[in-house]
Simulated assay, not measured.
Amino acid sequence: MPDVILTRRLDAPRDLVWRACTDPATFAAWFWPPRLEPRYVLDARVGGSWRVESPVALMAVGGVFAVVSPPELLVYSWRWDGEQEESRVELRLVPARERSTLLELTHTGISTDETAADLRQGWNDYLDRLPAALSERDG
């Protein structure tokens, strides 16, 4: 099975990056683009659920948190509405240079190379929006 593994160095302290991944309002500032008019549910606790849906694009994805270990590790399931395949996302936040954080993303349990390519593109799009959201919150 193919995996998606991405690393980003973010110019923000680890606690701010953690908040961007676990706080509903901050998460909403970067995850899906506003043009999709996304709606978010994010209950970042073990057993809590998360969901993002777009009435405009008629799609949704969600899952359940398996590990919530602030401010270092977040693990949750990932399943698109209408699909049987469930995969797993692990976000590890490592302190880097002063006030910066290394975000290590690993998305596993992906069944095909095509699905992995789509997920890689999606994650790159999401993570491309994250620095702007962090700078707005850090200001």
Score class of each variant (00 low, 15 high):
residue 15 D to F: 09
residue 98 E to T: 13
residue 128 D to P: 01
residue 94 V to L: 13
residue 68 V to C: 03
residue 71 P to A: 06
residue 129 R to D: 00
residue 56 V to W: 09
residue 57 A to N: 07
residue 61 V to R: 08
residue 52 V to N: 06
residue 74 L to M: 04
residue 134 L to Q: 00
residue 7 T to A: 14
residue 10 L to G: 00
residue 87 S to N: 01
residue 55 P to A: 04
residue 30 W to A: 00
residue 43 D to I: 05
residue 83 E to M: 14
residue 68 V to G: 02
residue 27 F to M: 10
residue 17 V to W: 01
residue 40 Y to N: 05
residue 83 E to W: 15
residue 102 L to V: 15
residue 44 A to N: 07
residue 3 D to I: 03
residue 59 M to K: 12
residue 116 A to L: 07
residue 6 L to V: 04
residue 138 D to P: 00
residue 88 R to I: 01
residue 32 W to F: 10
residue 70 P to K: 09
residue 109 G to M: 04
residue 83 E to Q: 15
residue 93 L to M: 10
residue 52 V to I: 15
residue 135 S to C: 08
residue 59 M to C: 10
residue 114 E to P: 05
residue 83 E to V: 12
residue 37 E to C: 09
residue 138 D to E: 13
residue 17 V to A: 05
residue 44 A to C: 10
residue 5 I to Y: 05
residue 63 G to Q: 06
residue 113 D to L: 13
residue 51 R to F: 06
residue 72 E to H: 14
residue 65 F to K: 08
residue 35 R to D: 13
residue 137 R to C: 04
residue 120 R to T: 15
residue 81 D to V: 10
residue 24 P to I: 11
residue 121 Q to S: 15
residue 116 A to Q: 07
residue 56 V to P: 08
residue 112 T to N: 06
residue 113 D to Y: 11
residue 66 A to G: 09
residue 119 L to H: 12
residue 79 R to K: 14
residue 37 E to K: 13
residue 121 Q to D: 15
residue 111 S to K: 06
residue 24 P to L: 10
residue 26 T to E: 14
residue 129 R to E: 01
residue 49 S to E: 15
residue 75 V to Y: 01
residue 90 E to V: 02
residue 113 D to I: 09
residue 60 A to F: 08
residue 116 A to R: 09
residue 89 V to A: 00
residue 80 W to C: 10
residue 22 T to M: 10
residue 106 T to Q: 09
residue 54 S to Y: 08
residue 100 S to R: 08
residue 2 P to R: 09
residue 118 D to A: 14
residue 72 E to G: 09
residue 133 A to N: 00
residue 139 G to W: 10
residue 78 W to T: 02
residue 118 D to P: 02
residue 124 N to S: 12
residue 135 S to P: 02
residue 139 G to F: 12
residue 102 L to N: 05
residue 64 V to P: 09
residue 7 T to H: 14
residue 21 C to S: 04
residue 49 S to W: 08
residue 8 R to Y: 04
residue 91 L to V: 03
residue 35 R to C: 04
residue 23 D to M: 06
residue 20 A to M: 02
residue 31 F to P: 00
residue 93 L to G: 01
residue 86 E to H: 11
residue 25 A to H: 15
residue 86 E to S: 13
residue 56 V to R: 15
residue 38 P to G: 03
residue 18 W to L: 06
